[in-house]
Design a protein around this nucleic acid. Structure first.
Length: 124
DNA sequence: GACTTGACTAGAC
DNA sequence: AGTCTAGCCAAGT
């Protein structure tokens, strides 16, 4: 399968309210170090939830058109994705890669009850 | 086919 | 924690 198609197929599987990083998608597509290539694919991605793809720091990467960046953040927030200091809280919103049977991508243990991150977000 | 250009990253200070 | 640097890979010229 072509790299581009593989990446697009993966992006299409990212659930609402979750995000994936360029590097993560590259790895899932079988090319662990092709994060930049994923960015290229996203630049002309259409018909897929491209807004759910962020960089390794949880931030929205810069691009030629800045308009898309605003759209991306708004859409994510509408899906319930929380930001802190301008970045997605990856620990909580990173997609596990559809890890059914597959080995899960390092995932933070679910916290129960009081959530400090959420509180901080509400206050800002 | 040799550059150049990105919506990138992990590692080293 | 912010900055730099070296890699990396696929496209376009």
């Amino acid at each position: 399968m072509k790299f581009d198609a593989a990446v697009l197929a993966l992006v299409a599987r990212i659930p609402r309210g979750r995000v994936a990083t360029y590097g993560q998608l590259a790895a899932l597509a079988g090319k662990p170090r092709s994060a930049r290539a994923v960015g290229r694919v996203m630049s002309k991605a259409d018909g897929v939830p491209w807004h759910r793809v962020v960089n390794a720091q949880g931030g929205i990467s810069r691009r030629a058109r800045m308009t898309g960046m605003v759209t991306q953040r708004i859409r994510l927030e509408q899906e319930g994705v929380l930001f802190r200091r301008g970045r997605v809280i990856l620990r909580r919103f990173r997609w596990d890669g559809g890890a059914a049977g597959r080995r899960a991508v390092a995932r933070a243990p679910r916290r129960r009850g009081f959530d400090a991150d959420a509180l901080v977000e509400l206050r800002s």
